[in-house]
Design a protein around this nucleic acid. Structure first.
Lengths: 165, 165
DNA sequence: CAAAATTGTTAGACACGTCTAACAATTATA
DNA sequence: TATAATTGTTAGACGTGTCTAACAATTTTG
């Protein structure tokens, strides 16, 4: 019995389709080609052709004029992308203070290219900022001060902590 | 006098070519097709065709079998990409603690897709971490602790700062 | 300096993902 | 329910960027 070779990675486009289908299908809602096309801002024929491709890879179930549904495999991939998307959005919006819309846009692009180790660290980093009192509470405020004035709140240092550069 | 319409953005590929040419040309060294092809891991004909395209846009000077050089415009674009690249590398390597190689790889991808506002904030963020005693010195160590134990150094609050594993 | 090795170019195929135009199925509605 | 409106599909063009194969120029070296 020959084990199936590991799925080759999906392209950014295909990941977008999977992601869109997963989001539109939340709560087992019926997913339509039109919706996908609007969400991804592509024309319907592009969706049809993507669905064909994804069906061949068994990531999506789709029959002519019929239902659209992720297979368990497809769902796994989609969840993964969504997870990266959310973590990145949190990073840009919460940690960096970027406006939500831009944060989402950047997340949409970066989610397709970031490496697993960086993604993992980024997630931990966001968790850290959220969990750490100095990180979560003081950190952002000092950061904001820095953003505004280009320097730290004076006497921020209690003595050149660590080694000066 | 009609102002030239803003240059449409370059594709990730074209940005890579400009970046490679700039790096290989540092210190006015002569740039060769072969080098570019090796640096970007593409075959030489791909380079030739990219050079043709970039020449038409006046971002590169190139004559058949001859010299390869960025125009001032091309240099501007290249510097820009390199700047993003470096900031991203610093972020991943120094702030997140990712190994240099992975950090570079991620920077290479992300530099082409990140938005200007996010880029700007990210740069400031890295500067902040480097400048702020609590950020630069203690922050990383507490972060490391968190990475290892999944929770903050107990009583991280105000006295617990500065310790470390 | 002439042959050999290397580097660079041209031509053309191909994969990918998009689009428009034309047509088909489905759904809404008068 | 017949017709109109909407949604979905097919066919095929196109742009981008890659590649291989064949050939041309340049450079090295015996």
């Amino acid at each position: 019995m020959v084990r199936q070779e590991a799925q080759r990675e999906q392209s950014a486009s295909m990941e977008d389709y999977l992601e869109a289908i997963a989001m539109l299908g939340e709560g087992k809602k019926v997913v339509k080609v039109k919706q996908i096309s609007e969400m991804l801002r592509v024309k319907m024929p592009s969706v049809t052709s993507a669905l064909k491709k994804l069906s061949e890879q068994e990531l999506v179930e789709h029959e002519r004029y019929g239902h659209i549904k992720l297979t368990p495999q497809g769902d796994r991939v989609a969840r993964d992308v969504i997870c990266r998307h959310e973590a990145l959005t949190r990073f840009f919006a919460q940690a960096l203070g970027i406006d939500r819309e831009t944060a989402e846009e950047d997340a949409c692009k970066i989610e397709h290219v970031i490496s697993p180790p960086s993604m993992e660290r980024l997630v931990k980093f966001v968790e850290f900022l959220e969990a750490c009192p100095l990180g979560g509470a003081n950190f952002p405020s000092r950061y904001e001060y820095y953003l505004e004035h280009g320097e730290l709140p004076q006497r921020c240092s209690k003595r050149g902590v660590g080694k000066g550069k």
